[in-house]
Design a protein around this nucleic acid. Structure first.
Lengths: 239, 239
DNA sequence: CGTGTACTTGACAAGAGTCAACACCAGTGG
DNA sequence: CCACTGGTGTTGACTCTTGTCAAGTACACG
């Protein structure tokens, strides 16, 4: 399986073997979670950095009315919230979507690791900057894209992020995201999302299985979304 | 006038005089901008960190259709994009809204400053974490709040952020934001925002001047917004 | 005093939510 | 082995929010 976290950081800049083995050591102990398990809840005191080794998770907030908004998807290789230990409490919940294997890195350990391995620190900062770019793209989607564009845009994003970590084969990606979860991320009702996906299917851009979504024509999807991948920063500054 | 940037960082943790004077030195040279001046554009190569000393600015993205989405407001004391120099290009534009006085801190200078002053580094990280929390709150607003709630929520946020840096007096804040800009931030049309603000005015929560918005009853506004300030992290972990 | 930009209002159209019913499937326990 | 159950997906009819278009008003500025 390999360690997708290390693979991802390597894609942000060369790591030497010492860097890689330090990361390997830091993520050696991992824990298995079932689907829909909270890693940390809104209001909790922040703890260690989570590193998703396998499976999918998401961040979300719940409103007084009980409705839910997913604010980010986490896939293998993603990690959350460098320095978050500086805050008194979490402003959102992090929950697994599927079964997942997750490592944690304590705050002091992470500080030491980044001090001793500047190239790792650099890669971690890049990962954080990209996550911020993704949030800006989500705000833009929610504010100014139609529901079809918005759905297509999210799926494009997930496709490219997954491709970066080798989750895509034959230009196909299987997303283990239910329509309920997608609707909570896209800020629409499940009913409406269902109609939107039907339309995308009609245009032969995606296909639907029960509970899974398969992307059959990424190029067409990008055209529908008006997708510009610049915010994923796959082209990085050469050092 | 003082240096609102330093004041803000001080509110995130004690800084000693050496820390403060280093920050003072780093922001001593500032530049004046007129309204609607680009600091940096989408596609540009990232440069130094910008520090807003006076005036207001915003980040925005433009879609192929030409519509605009504001993704963040920057007020005095705010700074942008620690480590952004690691990326090859900006994924959004930063533009002044009003006349503004803005300092820049080069990447190496900032690295040196943070190395030599851990308390400054700590405060900068907190500022960044809060900015991320704000983005999550925006995503949540756009996805799951009605237009009235959303407008009220944004105004609450700006009110509290402004209060933190001493911009509020007599529970009143004057926002130099046009309805066009607010509409671009809230993901609605100016026409609709106008009606929403009229409704908020009717409920005596805000009052409107041409081009300026005055917040007269923050408490009522918070009730309308269902506002929970946790995401602004005003209560920080004690070190 | 004219001109441009922002704000305001009304009438109408389009998009998205709501409600309700039903289909489908996986897992459970009898 | 089958009926039951709960979660998810699907569809239709209807409502309501929001966008669109168009016209007009009010300032600020040169």
């Amino acid at each position: 399986m390999g360690n997708r976290f290390i693979d991802k950081l390597k894609s942000y800049g060369v790591l030497d073997t010492a860097d890689a083995s330090a990361l390997e050591a830091a993520t050696a102990r991992s824990q298995d979670y079932g689907a829909k398990a909270d890693l940390i809840r809104e209001g909790d005191r922040p703890g260690p950095v989570f590193v998703i080794l396998e499976g999918w998770a998401c961040r979300y907030k719940v409103l007084p009315s009980g409705t839910r908004q997913v604010t980010a998807f986490l896939m293998p290789g993603d990690c959350c919230d460098l320095h978050v230990g500086l805050l008194a409490e979490m402003d959102h919940t992090i929950q697994t979507i599927t079964q997942a294997k997750i490592a944690t890195i304590g705050r002091e350990e992470m500080d030491r690791l980044m001090d001793a391995h500047p190239k790792v620190a650099r890669a971690m900062y890049i990962a954080q900057l990209i996550d911020e770019g993704i949030m800006r793209a989500w705000i833009t989607s929610m504010g100014r894209r139609t529901s079809i564009e918005r759905a297509a845009h999210l799926i494009c994003e997930l496709y490219l992020r997954a491709a970066n970590i080798g989750l895509v084969s034959n230009a196909e990606l299987i997303l283990p995201l239910s329509q309920l979860v997608l609707a909570d991320a896209l800020g629409m009702t499940p009913v409406h999302l269902n109609r939107v996906l039907k339309e995308l299917k009609l245009q032969a851009a995606v296909s639907l299985q029960r509970g899974k979504l398969m992307i059959t024509d990424p190029a067409k999807l990008m055209r529908i979304a008006g997708f510009d991948e610049n915010y994923l920063h796959r082209r990085l500054r050469v050092a």
